[in-house]
Amino acid sequence: MATVKFKYKGEEKEVDISKIKKVWRVGKMISFTWDEGGGKTGRGAVSEKDAPKELLQMLEKQ
């Protein structure tokens, strides 16, 4: 499965696309949330040019 790689608060992170729940556009950035388990929700953002095609497809479906 595809993953999204991004930096959050200076830390490199990687999230499996299948865990992503919500995707939206903020200017030229793609923001998203995912389920971290245990009732926690993670947040992240990646530039439109660095976003994997699967993430962009999720954005178009909404």
Rank of each mutant, 00 (worst) to 15 (best):
I17V: 15
A51K: 01
Q62F: 04
F6E: 00
T33A: 08
S47F: 14
L56C: 14
E12R: 03
M29C: 15
Y8M: 02
Y8N: 03
E60S: 12
M1N: 14
M1C: 14
Q57P: 04
R43Y: 10
S31T: 09
S18A: 12
A51P: 04
K19R: 07
E60Y: 10
V23G: 03
R43P: 08
K53M: 12
D35F: 06
G38F: 12
I20N: 00
K19D: 13
R43E: 10
M58C: 14
A45E: 15
V26A: 11
D50P: 02
K7Y: 05
K13S: 02
D35N: 14
E36S: 11
Q57T: 07
K61Q: 09
W34K: 00
K53P: 12
L56H: 10
I20G: 00
M29S: 14
G10M: 02
K9D: 06
D50W: 13
K53Q: 12
K53L: 11
G39R: 08
G37F: 13
K13C: 06
K61V: 13
M58Q: 05
L55H: 00
K61I: 14
E12Q: 08
S18W: 13
K61S: 13
S47A: 14
E60G: 09
K21T: 11
E14S: 05
K5S: 02
E48S: 04
G44V: 13
K9I: 02
E60A: 13
G44Q: 03
I30P: 00
I30K: 00
M1E: 15
G42Y: 14
I30T: 02
E14D: 06
K61D: 12
V26P: 03
F32G: 01
E36C: 14
K40R: 13
R43A: 07
W34R: 00
L55G: 00
G42R: 13
G37R: 06
K61H: 14
R25N: 05
M1H: 14
A51C: 14
K5G: 01
T3F: 08
E54F: 05
K7I: 09
G38E: 08
S18I: 11
E48A: 08
W24A: 03
T3D: 01
K22T: 14
T3L: 07
Q62E: 14
M1V: 09
K40G: 12
I30Q: 00
S18M: 13
S31Q: 08
Y8S: 03
E11D: 04
T3Y: 05
K21P: 03
V4A: 01
K22R: 13
S18V: 11
Q62L: 11
A2G: 10
E11S: 04
P52R: 02
R43N: 14
K7G: 03
D50I: 09
T3N: 03
M58V: 08
L56Q: 12
S31A: 05
V46D: 00
L59T: 07
T3P: 02
D16A: 14
R43M: 09
K5C: 03
V15I: 14
S18R: 07
D35Y: 10
M29Q: 12
K19S: 09
E48F: 04
S47L: 07
T33I: 13
G37K: 08
E48Q: 08
M29D: 06
L55A: 01
E14K: 03
K5L: 02
S47H: 14
L59M: 07
S47E: 15
Q57S: 08
T33G: 04
T33V: 10
F6Y: 06
A2M: 08
K21L: 14
Q57C: 13
K22D: 10
E14A: 05
G27T: 10
D35H: 12
T33P: 00
T33F: 07
D16W: 07
S47D: 13
S18T: 07
S31P: 04
G27A: 15
W34T: 01
M29A: 14
K40I: 12
V4G: 00
Q62M: 07
L59C: 13
W34Q: 00
K28W: 08
T41N: 09
R43H: 11
V23A: 12
V23H: 02
R25V: 04
F32A: 05
K19G: 11
E48V: 07
K53N: 08
E36T: 11
K28Q: 09
G37M: 10
E54L: 06
E14V: 09
G10L: 02
G37E: 11
L59A: 09
K9P: 01
L59K: 02
R43C: 15
W34A: 01
Y8L: 02
D35C: 15
E36W: 11
R43Q: 12
E60C: 15
D16V: 12
V15C: 04
P52N: 05
W24L: 04
R43I: 11
E54I: 04
K21E: 11
L55R: 00
A2H: 12
V46A: 09
G37A: 06
T3V: 09
V26N: 11
R43G: 09
A45Q: 10
G37V: 10
D50Y: 08
I30Y: 10
V26H: 08
I17D: 01
W34C: 01
R25C: 15
G39A: 12
A51L: 04
M29G: 06
G39I: 10
T33Y: 07
M58D: 03
K21C: 15
E36A: 07
I30F: 12
D50Q: 14
V26E: 07
S47R: 06
K5M: 02
W24F: 06
T33R: 15
